[in-house]
Amino acid sequence: MDVFLQQLINGLSLGGIYALIALGYTMVYGIIELINFAHGDVYTLGTFFSLAILTLLGVTGIVTGPALIVVVAVTILGAMILCGLTGVIVERLAYRRLRNAPKLAPLITAIGMSFILENLMLYWHGPSPIPFPAVIPNPAVGLGSVTIQAKQIMVIVLAVVLMVVLQVFVYNTKLGKAMRATAQDKDAAQLMGININTTIALTFLIGSALAGAAGFVSGVYYGSTWFLNGFAAGLKAFTAAVLGGIGNLAGAMLGGFLIGLTEAMTTQFISDQWSNVVVFSVLVLVLIFRPTGLLGESLPNKV
C-alpha cells in the first residue's frame, strides 16, 4: 500500500509535466486543428531558456530565503515569455501561410519545425545531457511511510494552478471568448470583428508559454536535460491530449495525470520496459469505447 501511494505521487508528478505540455497541444488543435509537432521541442527549449536565465542570474545550486522566490519567478516568467514568443514566431513562419492549404501541408511543416528547433538546441548545447541546477531546496515531507518531495509538490501545484488560470482565461475573458469563437468558425468570427490572426497567435503564445513553464519544472525536477528531451515527452503529452479529448483543457490535464499514473503503476506492478506498451494500450482501449476521449472533444461541429 505504501509503495502504491509512493508511486501515486511519482505518477502525479510525471503527469503534471505531461499535462502542462498537453495543454499546448490541445489549445492549438482546438483552434486550427493542427497537431503542432514542434510543441515538444518548445518544451525542451523552455528548459534551455531557464538554464540560460539561471546562468545569467549566477545560480548554480540551491537558492534559499527570499531570493528563491525571485529566482523562481524570474526564471519561470522569462522561460514562459521566451517560449511564448518562439511559439508565435513558429506560427508566423511555418503555419499562417498554410492555414488554408490542405491539412497535410502544415502537418509536414510542423515536423520540419520540430527538426529545426531540435537542431538549434543541438547547436546551442551539444548532444550530451546538460546538468541543470537544483534551484529549489528539496526537503522530503514524510506522510506516514510515504515521502513527498518539495519538487514533486511544485510540479503538481504549478500544473493545477496554471490549468485553472487558463480555464478562467478562456471562459471568462473577452480574449478567451474570441479564441472560442475562432475555434468554432473562423470566418464568422472574422465577420464579427475578431482579428483571427491575433487570436491564433495568442493561442500559440499561451500554449508555448505553458510549455516553457513545463520546461523549467522538468529541469528542476530531473536535474538534467538534453536537446531531444521533447520528443518522447511531446509524444506522451499529445497522447494525453487525445486521451482526455482533444481541444478540451480539463481533458488534457486529466489525460496527463492518467498517463503519468499508468506509467508509474506499470513500472511498479509489471515492469518498466512495458510502461509504454501499457500507456498506448490504454489509449487504444479508451478510443475504441469513447472515440472522442474521456471528457469528449470540444471541437466545433463543422457542417
Binding site: N10, L228, A264, D272
Partner: peptide, 14 residues
C-alpha cells in the same frame, strides 16, 4: 529501461 527514458523515479521507488 528504454531508450530515451528520462524518468526513473517510479522504477527506483520500486
Amino acid at each position: 529501461i528504454t531508450k530515451g527514458q528520462q524518468d526513473f523515479k517510479a522504477l527506483l521507488t520500486k
